[in-house]
């Protein structure tokens, strides 16, 4: 079922995903999905996703149980992907093919607002992966913790501050920042603080 769109028809998960954006249901409390990825590099065209970590924020809290972690099996070979596939990065997690990874990701994020630090590159990586599956681009609203941070600081939006520096400025513990999920969780804390400070 998962691959029937290869024969021409639009896959069900994509239909479900698109349909989510048709309803004007504003009654439910907004769900944010804070995510981070490990990739083979920063070129969206050439590089690929290695793993995704994502966690939901509802209201003023991170929902610990509302969590996704996907590791993607690679057929491309770069020094980083080799290390990754050989299990140096994460031996224990089960890996899935890119298409399955995208299905899990879209099913998880649904119509939530996507939040990330310097989120555009990550979004572009996802869009490229979707393109390889002959699908459209992500439709979710976006929020960038970097942009929020600059707004709070009163600096121009295009100033770049690394997640590490933001954590230092906000006094957030960085010890989890070794993996995609750790980055996602740390970014979620950053998001909670900035959300409170700016008053979103």
């Amino acid at each position: 079922m998962a691959f029937e769109w290869l024969t021409g028809s639009t896959p069900q998960f994509w239909k479900n995903y698109i349909n989510l954006f048709d309803t004007d249901d504003n009654s439910a409390q907004k769900r944010f999905v804070v995510f981070d990825m490990e990739t083979t590099g920063v070129d969206a065209k050439e590089d690929v996703i290695l793993s995704i970590g994502a966690i939901a924020v509802v209201g003023n809290g991170i929902e610990v149980g509302d969590f996704l972690e996907v590791a993607i099996l690679q057929d491309k070979f770069s020094p980083k992907s080799i290390a990754f596939n050989n299990g140096i990065v994460d031996l224990s997690s089960e890996k899935v093919v890119e298409a399955e990874g995208m299905i899990q990701f879209l099913n998880f994020v649904k119509d939530s607002i996507l939040v990330g630090h310097n989120v555009n590159l990550d979004i572009e990586m996802v869009n490229q992966a979707l393109k390889r599956l002959d699908l459209g681009r992500l439709k979710n609203p976006l929020m960038d913790t970097n942009a929020l941070y600059q707004r709070w600081k009163g600096l121009p939006d295009d100033t770049r501050t690394s997640l590490d520096d933001v954590c230092d400025a906000l006094k957030i513990d960085k010890s989890d920042r070794l993996t995609a999920w750790g980055n996602a969780y740390t970014t979620a804390l950053v998001f909670l603080k900035l959300k409170r400070k700016i008053g979103i």
């Binding site: 991170i62 610990v64 149980g65 909670l192 603080k193 409170r196 400070k197």
Partner: peptide, 14 residues
């Protein structure tokens, strides 16, 4: 228990 809990941030004096 952990799976069902949430993490909340409080600003000073919140």
């Amino acid at each position: 228990i952990a799976l069902q809990c949430k993490v909340v941030y409080l600003e000073k004096n919140q």
